[in-house]
């Protein structure tokens, strides 16, 4: 009986121990949600070049990711969709100086057929249209608000979505006549109008842990090979 109990204890302890700590060769990369598809492609290429490193992507809003780092998440690399989220971090938390690796712009997305007959930013002043933006607490919402303000337009938004994917879904389904989204966010079946604006948002990247592999990953994203992948997904170069 005692022997069996001892065995159970050993099993539980074993499970706890093996569950803790990052396993060998694993690299945890926290990346902004808008980087998702591009970073999956970067992950593939990086792992092809470094077969001994297993990149694990942690995708969420930049502020959420920054909060996770502050609360002690074992993150190796942080790629943010806004400079604020990185600037607000205690510099001591970061292992390397943040470097901008990509830029993004805002465009107008409309459902197929463009039922609201949107031809540009001015069209959004029409209060009969249902118009959406990201919330100003996320980078795409902040950028959209600045662009509308620059244009001195009175746009009455009908919803401020928590992230750009939620916004795009509502546009794609035709629930909204127009939404201000990133140029990197396109759906088949969504129509696009470009916006004339110099406003862009910058994506900084930094190594968080002292893991050498983290620095390797950051260097790859900033390298011509990494930049080429990002450009394929519509990101601008810094």
């Amino acid at each position: 009986m005692n022997a069996r109990r001892g065995l159970y204890v050993a099993m539980v302890v074993g499970l706890l121990v093996s569950g803790c700590g990052a396993s060998q060769g694993e690299l945890l990369v926290s990346a902004a949600a808008s980087l998702g598809e591009a970073f999956e492609a970067i992950e593939d290429e990086f792992e092809r070049l470094h077969p001994d490193i297993d990149v694990v992507l942690n995708l969420a809003g930049s502020t959420t990711l920054a909060n996770q780092i502050v609360e002690g998440a074992p993150v190796d690399v942080f790629a943010s969709a806004d400079e604020m989220s990185v600037a607000n971090l205690d510099p001591e938390i970061l292992h390397s100086e943040p470097a901008v690796f990509a830029t993004n712009r805002i465009q107008i997305a409309m459902p197929a057929g463009n039922p609201g007959e949107v031809v540009g930013l001015d069209s959004l002043e029409n209060n009969d249209l249902l118009v959406g933006s990201c919330d100003v607490s996320v980078p795409c919402g902040l950028l959209a608000a600045q662009i509308v303000e620059d244009a001195e337009l009175q746009v009455e938004f009908d919803t401020f979505e928590p992230n750009v994917k939620a916004l795009l879904t509502k546009v794609e389904n035709g629930e909204l006549d127009a939404g201000l989204v990133y140029v990197t966010d396109t759906f088949p079946g969504v129509e696009i109008v470009e916006i004339e604006s110099d406003r862009t948002t910058s994506y900084p990247i930094a190594a968080v842990s002292a893991d050498q592999d983290g620095t390797l990953f950051v260097d790859f994203v900033l390298s011509p090979a990494g930049q080429e992948i990002l450009a394929e997904f519509g990101f601008g170069t810094p």
Binding site: D135, P162, A166
Partner: peptide
């Protein structure tokens, strides 16, 4: 609520939605 009704302060932003939005900005 956020998936169906969206989020607009004063119209469709309930208390949980306000909390979520602030969690991303002013914690």
């Amino acid at each position: 609520t956020v998936a169906f009704a969206g989020s607009l302060a004063g119209r469709t932003e309930t208390l949980p939605l306000a909390i979520f939005v602030n969690l991303q900005g002013d914690r």
